[in-house]
Design a protein around this nucleic acid. Structure first.
Lengths: 107, 107
DNA sequence: CCGTTAATTCGATAATTATCGAAATATGGA
DNA sequence: TCCATATTTCGATAATTATCGAATTAACGG
C-alpha cells in the first residue's frame, strides 16, 4: 500500500460519522447495509452520508453493489488488512513492540 | 482504546507532514530526533512542525523528552500497537481476512 | 546578567473538509 | 408512461485544520 492510499484510509477513519458508518458495516457482516439505512441509523442527511460512503469507498475500506433500487455497502476487509500491513511494515518496520501489541492481545 | 483516541490517531497519521515526521521518527529508532532536525528534514517552519508534533503526541504516537536545549521526539510503538488492536478487534471483530492480511505477509 | 540557540505558544490567514437542501439520475411498479 | 423510492451530484455555507511570522519560554555559556 502506498503512502497516499494509506493517508486517505486514515483520513476516512478519522471522521466521526465515517468511522461510525464503517463500524456499522463491519457488524452488518457480508449482507451489508443499504445507504439509506446507514443514514437513518446515524441520523445524517442522505446526501451527507453518500459523500462519506464515497470517500470510504475510494479509500478502499468499503465496497458497494446496486441491488435494485438500493445500493448496498459492505466493509472491505482486504482494504483494512492493507492498511494494517502498511502500519506494521512500511510504517513501523515490523517493530517488536507493535507485533507484540497485536500478537499478545488479539482475540 | 476508545473510539475518540483512535480517531485522533487516525487524524494524526492522515496528514502528509505528520505521517512523514512519524516515519522519520520510526527510522530514527530509540535515539529519536530533536524537533528542529525534523523540521529541517521536512522543510517546514519550526512552529508548524511543533504544532504537528504536539498533535502526534496527544494522539499517543510519539513521546518527547527535553535534553538540554533540545526536545527529542521518539515514535511510541505502544501507541501504534493500541491503534492496530483497535483496528483489528474493536473495529473489525478479528475478521479472518484482516488477521490473514497481517499474519500471511508480515515481515 | 546578557546573548545565543531551541522550541513552543499566539494570532492571523489560507486551505480543506463537513453539512445540507435542491436538483439530477436510476430503478421498479401501477 | 407516470409516479414513488433510493441514491447521488451539485452548489453554497459553516466549521475545522494547516501554515507561517512574531513573540514568548527555556537552557546553556561566557
Amino acid at each position: 500500500m502506498e503512502i497516499l492510499s494509506a493517508r486517505s484510509a486514515f483520513a476516512a477513519l478519522a471522521q466521526e460519522t465515517r468511522l461510525a458508518a464503517f463500524r456499522l458495516l463491519v457488524r452488518a457482516g457480508p449482507a451489508g447495509l443499504p445507504a439509506g439505512e446507514i443514514a437513518r441509523a446515524l441520523g445524517t442527511a442522505p446526501s451527507t452520508l453518500s459523500t462519506h460512503l464515497g470517500l470510504l469507498q475510494r479509500a478502499g475500506l468499503v465496497s458497494s453493489e446496486r441491488r435494485s433500487r438500493r445500493i448496498v455497502y459492505r466493509a472491505d476487509f482486504e482494504g483494512v488488512g492493507a492498511l494494517m500491513r502498511f502500519l506494521m511494515q512500511d510504517c513501523c518496520k515490523g517493530h517488536p513492540a507493535v507485533r507484540a501489541a497485536i500478537g499478545g492481545e488479539a482475540a
